[in-house]
Amino acid sequence: MQSAPAGESMRAGHPVQPSQRMPPLSALRECLSFQADEPPQSFLSRLFGVHPIAREARRSFSGALAELAVMESLSALGSEWTVVHSVPVAGHKQDDHRLVEHRVIDHLVIGPAGIFTLSVESHAGQALWVGERTFIADGERLDHLAKADETGRAVTRLLGSALAAAGVALEIVVTPCVVVDAPATLEVRQRPGRIQVVTARSFSAWLTGLPRLISPTVLEEVVAVAVAASSWPSSPLDHLDTEADAHERRAEFERLRLRVSSARLRRLLWTGLGVVVSYGAVIVNLGGLTALELTSALGR
């Protein structure tokens, strides 16, 4: 897999070059932000395995796990595939006293099987049901499909215009993908048009198993246009990290994930110890009974 940033933006008055664009990892950033305001755990809390994640950060913690699972899946793609991170599809400007907010695609994937937009959604442990126009998670109807369709249309329009301007004669087809992490079940009753709903674990295998639709020569031209900053709206994203910043955030999150695993293990150990002590107390009590009393107790 080739990783290529896209889009040029402004940060603190200085242009952020395409080579500095990193994956958004929005949930991971939010989780660490919540945790930064959380006081350190006490010795007893650590000893008894109290959950180290603040309650308001637990949803974003799950989302961060989904983001990292997708990143791992993308890293398994071969060299024919290019991944463009944090692609802006709408600018952020003042227009007739109206503020137009930016929108950013998590990942744009381009390869032999076509062009794919990825929207990462966290639904760990949930039952998912997908219909032609419906996405339901544990009984709650969500708008993932509508957002994915809107994103796919935006990329089709923007990338199509950029290719035409570059003289590349290609009618592109963009496949929007909703990538979900670790659901309990995923039932796709009816495929929602051109949108694909795939788990993070199976995404790379599904993608590489698709038939080739773009020749190597045309693919090279498409990638060259897709990674150009001029192909996308300028968007002053204030959350862009340098590579060093991104690695530090990942390392901080990994330390947090280790604390969560350690706390879970301690809770299991205390639970197991409680069971052992309870059985021990029962055995000790039974040991003090006479044979007649024991027979009578067991016969009740």
Rank of each mutant, 00 (worst) to 15 (best):
L273D: 03
R257D: 04
R250L: 09
F253A: 10
L258R: 13
L273S: 09
R257Y: 07
R264E: 15
R264N: 12
S261C: 07
V277P: 00
R266L: 08
V284H: 03
R255G: 15
G274T: 07
T271A: 15
R255V: 10
L273M: 11
L268N: 09
E254H: 06
V275T: 13
V277T: 03
L268W: 13
E248M: 10
L265V: 08
L273T: 10
S261D: 13
R266G: 04
I283F: 11
Y279G: 05
V275K: 03
S278I: 15
R255D: 12
E254V: 05
G280V: 01
Y279K: 04
A281H: 05
A251N: 06
F253G: 06
R255M: 14
V282N: 04
V282Y: 08
S261N: 12
G280F: 00
V282A: 12
F253V: 06
G272Y: 03
V284D: 09
V260D: 02
L268T: 11
R259E: 15
T271E: 08
S278P: 01
A263K: 05
Y279L: 14
S262D: 07
E252K: 08
V260C: 07
Y279Q: 08
R264M: 09
G274A: 05
R250K: 06
L268C: 09
R255K: 13
S262E: 06
A251F: 07
V284R: 07
S262T: 13
V277W: 10
W270S: 07
E248A: 15
R264I: 00
A263E: 03
S261L: 15
E252G: 08
S278M: 15
S278G: 11
V277Q: 03
V260S: 03
W270I: 11
R259Q: 14
L268M: 12
L268S: 14
A263R: 09
L265Y: 07
R267L: 07
E254Q: 10
V284W: 02
S262W: 14
L265H: 06
R257V: 00
Y279C: 09
S262F: 09
V276E: 03
L256I: 11
R259I: 08
R264V: 02
R250N: 01
G274F: 05
R249W: 00
V260W: 11
A281E: 11
A263I: 02
R250H: 11
A251P: 01
V275R: 04
S261V: 12
A251Y: 07
G272S: 04
L256P: 06
E254A: 11
I283W: 04
V282R: 00
R267V: 09
L268I: 11
L268R: 08
R250M: 02
R267Y: 00
A263W: 02
E252T: 15
V260T: 01
S278H: 12
I283K: 01
E248L: 13
F253Y: 07
R250T: 03
L265D: 06
S262H: 00
F253H: 06
Y279S: 00
E254M: 02
R267A: 07
A251E: 10
G274R: 03
R257L: 12
